[in-house]
Nucleic acid binder design. Sequence first.
DNA 1: TCAAAAGTGTTATCATTACACCCATGG
DNA 2: CCATGGGTGTAATGATAACACTTTTGA
Lengths: 239, 239
Amino acid sequence: MSYTYDYPRPSVTVDCVIFGLDAQQKVNVLLIQRKNDPFAGQWAMPGGFVDMDEDLETAALRELEEETGVHDLFIEQLFTFGAPDRDPRGRVISVAYYALVNLEHHPIEAASDARRVQWFPVNDVPELAFDHAHIFRVALERLRAKVRYQPIGFELLPPTFTLTQLQNLYENILGIESGLNKRNFRTRILKMGVLQEVGVQEGVAHRPARLYRFDRRKYEELEKSKYEDLIRRGLDFDI
Amino acid sequence: MSYTYDYPRPSVTVDCVIFGLDAQQKVNVLLIQRKNDPFAGQWAMPGGFVDMDEDLETAALRELEEETGVHDLFIEQLFTFGAPDRDPRGRVISVAYYALVNLEHHPIEAASDARRVQWFPVNDVPELAFDHAHIFRVALERLRAKVRYQPIGFELLPPTFTLTQLQNLYENILGIESGLNKRNFRTRILKMGVLQEVGVQEGVAHRPARLYRFDRRKYEELEKSKYEDLIRRGLDFDI
DNA sequence: TCAAAAGTGTTATCATTACACCCATGG
DNA sequence: CCATGGGTGTAATGATAACACTTTTGA
C-alpha cells in the first residue's frame, strides 16, 4: 500500500530524552544503539515515526517502551527540531520529549531485535546520531532550568533519604562541582516545610543522619499558595 | 506533480501567535480571517504549511509576512500541537511560535487575496478556527510566565517612557486588574539600574513625569552577572 | 581516639511589603 | 485652588550569604 499526496510532506518523528537518577544520585541518559543505517551502530535517543492516529505524546511513550522497555512515566514536550538537513534520509521533523526518573524504577530491556539499550552518565555520553547531541544539550539545559524552581528531585530519591543525599542530587543535576553551602541548603529546604522527619540512619560509621520523607500534600498546598502570591504580587523578576 | 510514500504522512504547519502592544500598553493578538473551508469566515492565527526545504522558524516568518505583512521580528517556539483530530482535513501537526511586539512598528496589510487581518485585544478575541483558542491560551500563559523573569516589555514602549507607562504595561500583560503597588514597583525597577533618566514630560495637566530610556547595555551586563550568580549559588527556588 | 559525615550558631546585609504622605502642573 | 497624576519616607519583617564550629557514630 502506498500513499499519494499533491504536495510533498515531511516525516514526523518523536524522540525521548530520558534522564535517570541512579543510586548515587548521578544523572544518566537512556540511549539505544542503532541497528540500521543511517548511523548504524551509533547511539541515539529512543524514538521513531508518529502513527497517523496517535497523539504525539502517546507516540513518544510507545516508541520509548518498544525500544527500551521503559514505561509508566511522565514526559514533557521539550522542543521541535526541524532543520531541513537534520536527517540524511530526507525531511524529518522531530518532536522531542524529556523526563527525569529514578532509573532503578525503570528497568531497561533490549528490544526484540536485540538492539542495545543503556544508561550513560550525562558527563560521558558517546557520539550521537543525527542532531541528537544538540537535542541532548537542549534537554539538559531545560532540566537544569526546571530543577531550580520546581522540587522535581524529591520523588526520585528512595522513600526516605538524608539531606546530604538531596543535596548531592541537586549538585549532580545542576552539574555543580564546587558544592552548595551545606548550612544554607539545609535551612532553605527545611524552611519549605515539605520534608517530614521519619527517623535516623543506623549502622553507619559516622554520626547517623536524619531521614526524611517528601510530603506531597504539603508540597501541593505550597504550590497553590505560591501561585496565588504570584498573581497578587505581579512582578517577580530578580533579574 | 504528486508524491508517493510507503507510509502515510501527516501534514506539518506552523502557526504564529503575535502579541502586539498598542499605544495604551494594551495587549492585542494578530488574527486573520479565513477565506476557505474548513472554518471559512472564522478568525485564526496566521500560519500555513511548511515547505520541504525551509526551517520551521523560517516557515513561520514567511507565512506571517505573506498573510499579514508583519515582518522583522523575533519569534520563539511555543509548543507543537498534534492531536489527531485537531484539523478536520486530516492529520495536521502544527508547530506554534509566538512573539510580543510593539504593534505600531508592525503595520498590517491584508494579503493579496483580500483576507482580513486585524489586531484584537486579548480580552476580546472572537471565536477561533481549529484548536486555535487552545493555542492562544497556551501562548498567553507563556507570555505571562516569561514577562515575570525577563524585562521583555521595556523595548516595546516608546523610546522614552514614564514609570507609569511601564507599570501599565506590566499590569496589562499580566492581566492584573487591581494594580501593582506603585512604590514597590518603582523601587524595584529603578534598583535594577537598566533605566536611564532622560528628561521630563511637558504640557501635561499634572506634575510632569520623568522620562526614561531603556539601557540595553546595562541590561546585558546584568543578565550576564545574573547567570553567573545562578551558577555559583545553585539553588534558586522560592517555591 | 580518630576519621567521617551530620548538624548548628551567628551575624551582617539586603530585599520585600505595606501604608501614608507630599509635590508639581494646567485649567 | 483643585483635580490629576507623579513621586517619596519609612519601618517591620524576612531572606540570604558566609564562615566556623560542635556532635555523633563505628572502627
